[in-house]
Design a protein around this nucleic acid. Sequence first.
DNA 1: TTTGATGCAAAGTATTTGCAATCGG
DNA 2: CCGATTGCAAATACTTTGCATCAAA
Lengths: 125, 125
Amino acid sequence: MRKSQQRTAIFEELGKLKSHPRGDELYDIVRQRLPRISLGTVYRNLELLRQRGMVLELPCGDFNRYDGKISPHHHFLCRQCRRLWDFNPDIAPGESKPIKNTADFQIESQFTVFYGLCRQCLAKT
Amino acid sequence: MRKSQQRTAIFEELGKLKSHPRGDELYDIVRQRLPRISLGTVYRNLELLRQRGMVLELPCGDFNRYDGKISPHHHFLCRQCRRLWDFNPDIAPGESKPIKNTADFQIESQFTVFYGLCRQCLAKT
DNA sequence: TTTGATGCAAAGTATTTGCAATCGG
DNA sequence: CCGATTGCAAATACTTTGCATCAAA
């Protein structure tokens, strides 16, 4: 994989974010740094970086959102506003339990999504 | 909410599935029962049923896939073929641990996604 | 010089929406 | 009858792709 300004910018800008953007959302951000970058380049590079394990697709069935943090962490999803946050409860469930393979599935990792209401949406109720 | 043939069919067909379809995928299935149903009707009803809590969006940040099962269960996601399966390991991690709220988040439930390779994709390696 | 990477634009896929017609209570 | 719901089609949103050009090694 060659170096390119574009790929570097995509990787670095994603790493700075706490949100989990789609390709087009990251495009808007990276464009502030490289105004002439194209949307296709962003999508192509995200897929490339994903294959190399340099960024994570959200490992929850949503293949179109990316996470620049490789280290394990959990997420909180607000059912009202649907924002997704990084979230590390004091007790991370499951982490202490052994991962068990079955005949059908070879498990490499596991991720927990907490689901409920964020503070703002709670206040509106 | 009034009754309609269409809504009933959408709800019932989704309930029969073990997969977690998008709107257009469910449309193909429901159409075998109601050939004249329209795609827009399927999307509109899924959103309606979701708001009433009658179906679940996949509580993992993927708002475009639906699950007809309300009772808690886990999922396995194959990183290669990207199929998503219902999955209940013998030890469901986290279930025995208390759910703890924080100042920012009111947690209503939690879901674990196991991530790795399914049997078929493993065989190809 | 060679080939991977890019910009651009067109095509493809998934979802939402406006509106007149229809159906259920 | 009245308003919720529908079918249809057009519009929107997001992603992928073909191709000529550019740039890294």
